[in-house]
Amino acid sequence: MTDFQFPLPKEEYMYPGHSACPGCGEPISMRMLLKALGPDTIMNVPAGCCAVIPGVWPTYSLKIPLIDHAFECTGAVSSGIRAALDHFGKEDVTVVGWAGDGGTADIGLQSLSGAVDRGTDMLYIMYDNEAYMNTGNQCSSATPCGANTTTTPGGKSHQRTKKDVMKMMIANGIVYGASLNPAFPEDFMEKVVTAKGIRGPKFLHILSPCPSGWKFDPRNTIKIARLATETGVFPLYEYRNGETIFTKDLKNRKPLEEYLRLQGRFKHLSQADVEGMQRVLDESIQKLLKEE
């Protein structure tokens, strides 16, 4: 055994030269995902950053087939791809629907629900940058309470809690669900490999920090992602056979403030606001721990 172990498989399924902003979380997760899945994968993407990042015709940044389509139909297109592959005896090819939080929690929710209901054997991934980032940071139903976006200027107008798409999908009938964070590559890879091995509709929720929308120095993407889990804002868990298991400790948490203060989208929050948010977070985690 060598001293120098790669933290991830060496094989690359992504080319450099793609169009993501510097420090974007999306390609980090995409790169890890494809390393875990390997080349027998066909992906479909709707509108969003994910449609821009892979490059401009005739260039293309991934080494797997990718099918583009309109905003609200990721689940439906995955169903169609799956059906055709099955018809041609290609059951071993993994179908991945990769969509943002707007494309999943808002405009694509019906189509996703339909695909889960149909029992489509797919890996549906919501890479969550918590707003409509491709159009320039507008509030989505996955935007957290208090965050500044261009349609919730000042952030205070946005007092709703983040839509819990995973809970909806569990009720809808997924066979596997998990939250993934690129700051924890081992956990990330394991969950993707597990999901790949299960037939049926799977839903993965990936946290995807966005330097330009969340307003932080692009060098801190992974640091902020890590803090999201360490503070309990983005718990890492796995859902299977009716049970949810947390895969990273939730009991010993860092203060929420460490996460919030690195991001310009929360800079308007007063100390009292932050304390209030900490209380809400603590309560919700107590509830989660009881459910486990």
Binding site: G55, V56, L62, K63, I64, P65, L66, I67, V93
Partner: peptide
């Protein structure tokens, strides 16, 4: 998958 291409990109 033997001949990866992108369909309908920008």
């Amino acid at each position: 998958t033997e001949n990866p291409m992108r369909f309908g990109g920008l």
